[in-house]
Amino acid sequence: MTAEPQTPSPSGDIADLVAIMAWLRSPGRGCPWDLEQTFASITPYTIEEAYEVADAIQRGDFADLRDELGDLLLQVVFHARMAEEQGLFAFPDVVHAITSKLIRRHPHVFGGDRDMSPEAVKGLWDSIKAEEKRARASERLRLGLPADAAAGLLAGVPSALPALTRAHKLQAKAGTVGFDWNDVEAVLAKIVEEAGEIVEARKSGAGLDAVADEVGDLLFAAVNLARHLDVDPEAALRGTNAKFERRFAAIEAALAAEGRGPAEASLAEMDALWNEAKRRERQG
């Protein structure tokens, strides 16, 4: 007769986290919700936790960051546990894969030239990644497996990435072979051009799909501008979202002091309150 394991206690040992996850996934004694999860059902939570890590960093809330990193780590352990149950791999294999990759991609640190510049390190990293990709393709061929679905230059940019981030990565990859604008002014001109095409599409009575296509082109060009200015478009938009929330909250607070809400105020009133909130922020 197998003894029931003791209820776990909080621990700083990763092995204990792995063991707790195994317990939660154990038929007959685990959690019904955890037991019914699959790779696909957990994926949205994995993405959400990564965003919550980024949000804690942006807010400078390091106590929250500690908790959010734990939530993200749980996602890794959860996926690894499901893989182990299917005989695919286990958590130690995940750790082995990343430690091997870090050592392999840092030859300048582990036995090489430690005086390389950051730019040279990035170039070395990219060349090692390219070699890994070729080796992976050869191995798939040796095993009789189908080739990667996408073997071109833009392969490896995950489709599940946020659209702004994915656009940035696609443009950067294309830029490595010279398919890029020469300077910021050219990108700014492209943004003006794309905005004009939206105007023309609306004037011509184009359908929603055609207008949406032009809006997408404008957003893609805006990401290109951010890239040329060394600005992370995802982080920049998160910052603007936070600014919008902050200033709109100021509008609500000002109106609430008068016993009103936004629905009872005119656009001109709210715009004036917005500008006042903006002025106070700038004065600091």
Rank of each mutant, 00 (worst) to 15 (best):
D67Q: 11
V177E: 08
G112R: 02
G156T: 04
A137G: 07
L74E: 07
G175D: 02
R105P: 00
K169G: 01
L154T: 07
G112C: 01
G175W: 03
V77I: 02
M82V: 02
V76H: 01
G178Q: 07
R66N: 13
A97H: 08
H168Y: 11
I98M: 13
E85A: 08
D126C: 05
G156P: 00
S100M: 09
K133I: 12
A137N: 08
T165E: 14
E85C: 03
R105C: 12
L164Q: 05
L102T: 15
V187M: 06
G60V: 07
E85Q: 13
D113P: 01
V157G: 01
G60M: 05
R166D: 09
A137D: 12
A63S: 09
L161I: 09
D61Y: 04
V109T: 15
E131H: 10
G70N: 07
I103L: 14
R59K: 15
A120Q: 11
K173Q: 12
L102M: 15
Q75G: 12
I128Q: 02
I98Q: 15
I128V: 06
R140M: 14
M116E: 06
V121D: 01
P158V: 12
H106Y: 10
L74N: 09
F78R: 07
D64V: 08
W125K: 10
E139T: 05
E185D: 15
I128F: 03
T165Q: 13
I128H: 02
L102K: 13
G60L: 05
A163P: 05
G111M: 02
P107S: 02
E139I: 06
E131L: 13
T176C: 04
F110R: 08
A80Y: 00
A150K: 11
N182A: 14
D183E: 09
K122F: 04
V95L: 07
S138Q: 15
R114H: 08
S159E: 15
F91G: 00
V109W: 14
A130Y: 05
L141S: 15
N182Q: 14
V184Y: 12
L124H: 01
T176S: 11
R81L: 01
E185C: 04
P146I: 04
